[in-house]
Every structure is written in structure tokens, then in C-alpha cells.
Design a protein around this nucleic acid. Structure first.
Lengths: 210, 210
DNA sequence: CAGTGTGAAGCGCTTCACAGCT
DNA sequence: AGCTGTGAAGCGCTTCACACTG
């Protein structure tokens, strides 16, 4: 077995990182004694060599002539990817989307826990929303510090997104999942991943032209 | 974000298509007489040559020494990308996420109209949800044919997603925006774009490891 | 044998750099 | 001079192919 710890610092291509997360899903619902790179590839819709190459960024997990042990591989990957323990998240923006995200079962199931919900709409602040008390933005710093939260979800309107990001970063947030349709500018050391729902629909439209 | 696209005709790179949609946003909120590739690039967070190259897939829209006329460029791009007229969409799955998507302002604002909402939960069928009557899956074919809908959004649990996709495709759907965390298998000619919300959070976790 | 791990080739997107237009 | 459009170079991800292993 190679030195996994040394490799965990290596720079991993973004596409690889995304695929690795998808492999996790596949491994979680596999009970077989072993699974081959070809089987993972089939389920993920990618090339088998791709699967092996992706895994090789973290080390050697397979047995030649046999394959991988799903449970072991799953545990190893989770550890390498920083998913071995529960992660806390705050949600900023309690509109329709934010409300849906608050108790999106996918988050809870996979080790993410929403610890607080923020919104600046006076009609919402102080009220309960799906089990959470909605708090005003001025309590961001306090809550994030108290719970030592590193991740945040931004689901506010486009025009407020950048200032919310600034406030979050100042409060110590290191990773942002942004749903506002804008390119957030953040300092070195902070990672942003944007999901633009409309963008996805729009690209589909391109393929419908006739 | 897995995608399973059937490169219909002109082979525009997928990354280009996504960026072009982002340029649309930028152009929409630009009033200036002209805008340069450098300005678009700055707002989109990409290289200026990238912007010009992306646009060149569709033609020549700029004036050397001057730049682009936002209004004209916007109209041209919308036309080329099949976004010049309203597109109808059905939503399958009326859970928290589906409910939020039904009247997500971003869809409405950018020319997408939700024409129907489906769910197989007897507790929901027949009831109204944000202005829509929730219908059972067995009415998919009827509604899609009547309205001649080409786009669908899948927001059902993972285990039902593939069968819903099959039903949608049989009913004539050509483009699917999939929120279920599974790699949908679809025939040639149907395009799927998957958005996996948890996946995005998971990749952020990787950068937080210390 | 069946299947992994990986150097090397292949390929496609990104960036450069500059001719050409206004 | 300022900026576009684009061939060509650069670069990084994907795929191949095969030595190696249990």
C-alpha cells in the first residue's frame, strides 16, 4: 500500500473531485464483496481507466485480478475527501429555494447539518421556518464563530450575493455554495462553487433548436 | 454535474455553451453603448480571448476598435441558443425542492414557463401547490402532448428518477434537468443535465481539510 | 486469467499573439 | 490607437495499452 497521506496534499483536478463524489454514491449502495473499476465506471457513466486514475490520486485501493472492497474504499475515500465527520453549514436567504435547502434530505443523509438560517426580510426574521429560527444578517458572525462553521450556502437574490459573501468570509467561512446567478469574487483561501439553476435549463434549450 | 448530451448538430463545446449563458446575464444588465470582450470577461471571471472565441462559434458580432453592442449581441445570442421564445417545462416531483422550483423567479424571468406539476403521492395529487394542480404520473403523456412540452425537471427521489425519465421520454420530452443523484440513461437525441446539490457541498469539504 | 496501476499518447479546451479592421 | 477574430501554441484532462499482481 502506497503512502496515502503524502498524496492527500496533491492537487486534484476538479473533474476528478466531482467524479470521486459520485463514486461515493455508487459505493454506498453496493453490497457485493468486490466491485471492479468497470462496474463503477458503468454506474457513473465514465471510462474504467478514468475511475482507476481518479482513485490513484489518493493511493492504491484495489486488488489486481479482484477489484475493490466497497466498504473499505468508501471509508478511505471519505477520509481523504474530508467527509469522514459531520460538517456544519449555515444557509443565508430564506426564500423558496433556501427553505427547500434547509431540510433537503440529501444534505442530512450525507453528513451535513444546517445549524442556522439567515434572512434580512423583517417579515421573516424571528419566525420559525422548518424548525429553524430565522436570524438577521447581523448575527452571522456570532453564530458562525460559536459553532465554528466553515461552510455556507447563499440563496439570496443576485444583487445581495456579493455582500453576503463578504460578510460570510469575514465571519470565517471557507467554502461557499452559491445559488445566486453572479460570479462571486472571493479572496485566496476561500472556495466558491456556484450552481445556477436557470443556466442549466438554458443550455438544454440549445439542443432543442431545430 | 454529469451530462449526457446528444451533440445534436453544430458541436459547440459544453464549457462554451455554459459560458455563453452567463454572458447573457451580463449583457442583460448592461446599458452602455458598447461593451468590450475584456469587460464581459471581467464580469464573468474568464479570459477575454475566451469570450471572443466563444462568440466566434456563432459568428462575428463585434466591431474592431469598438466592442459589442449589448442589445444586439443579446438578441443574436438568444436566437442562436434557442432562447428567443418562451419555453414550456413540466416539473415531476412536488417535494420541497420541486415546490421551490415551480415558481423559482429565475425560470419565469428568463422565459421558462412551468405548465404542469406531477407527483405520485396520493396525499398531494389533486391538491393545489403554488397555483398548480398536482397531477398523477399517469397524466404525463396527455399533458406533455397537449402543450407540446420539450423540457422536464426531475425532482423525485433517486430510486424513481430513471423510471420517470423513461416515461418522460416516451411522452416526447427532449431535454431533462435532473436533480436526482443518479446517472440517468437516455437514448440518443435526448439531453440530460444533472444538478446534484449535495455533490457540490461535498467537493467543498475537500478544500476544508487541514 | 481477470483486473489494477500507470506511463505515454491522444484530444480538446484555453490562452497567446498578432493581423486586420475602424 | 483600440479592439475584434483567429491560427497556432500551450496545457491539462481523458483514454489507451500493457506490465504487473494475486
Amino acid at each position: 500500500m502506497a503512502d496515502n497521506r503524502a498524496r492527500s496534499r496533491a492537487q486534484i483536478p476538479d473533474p476528478t473531485l466531482l467524479r470521486l463524489c459520485r463514486y461515493l454514491r455508487i459505493l454506498e449502495r453496493t453490497d457485493d464483496g468486490t466491485i471492479s473499476s468497470a462496474e463503477i465506471a458503468e454506474a457513473a457513466g465514465v471510462n474504467a481507466a478514468q475511475v482507476r486514475k481518479d482513485l490513484s490520486f489518493f493511493g492504491e485501493f484495489g486488488q489486481p485480478g479482484v477489484g475493490y472492497h466497497p466498504k473499505d474504499l468508501l471509508a478511505s475515500l471519505k477520509l481523504m475527501m474530508g467527509l469522514d465527520e459531520e460538517l456544519e453549514v449555515v444557509v443565508v436567504g430564506a426564500g423558496a429555494l433556501g427553505s427547500a435547502l434547509i431540510n433537503y434530505p440529501g444534505f442530512e443523509n450525507r453528513g451535513f447539518r444546517v445549524v442556522a438560517v439567515f434572512d434580512n426580510n423583517p417579515a421573516k426574521v424571528g419566525h420559525r421556518l422548518r424548525g429553524y429560527e430565522v436570524m438577521a444578517f447581523d448575527r452571522l458572525g456570532e453564530i458562525i464563530a460559536d459553532h465554528d462553521v466553515s461552510l455556507a450556502i447563499i440563496s439570496v437574490p443576485r444583487v445581495s450575493a456579493q455582500e453576503v459573501a463578504v460578510a460570510l468570509i469575514e465571519a470565517g467561512i471557507k467554502g461557499i455554495l452559491n445559488f445566486a446567478p453572479v460570479n462571486l469574487k472571493v479572496p485566496e483561501g476561500v472556495v466558491v462553487r456556484s450552481v445556477d439553476l436557470t443556466l442549466q435549463l438554458e443550455t438544454l434549450a440549445y439542443y432543442l433548436r431545430d
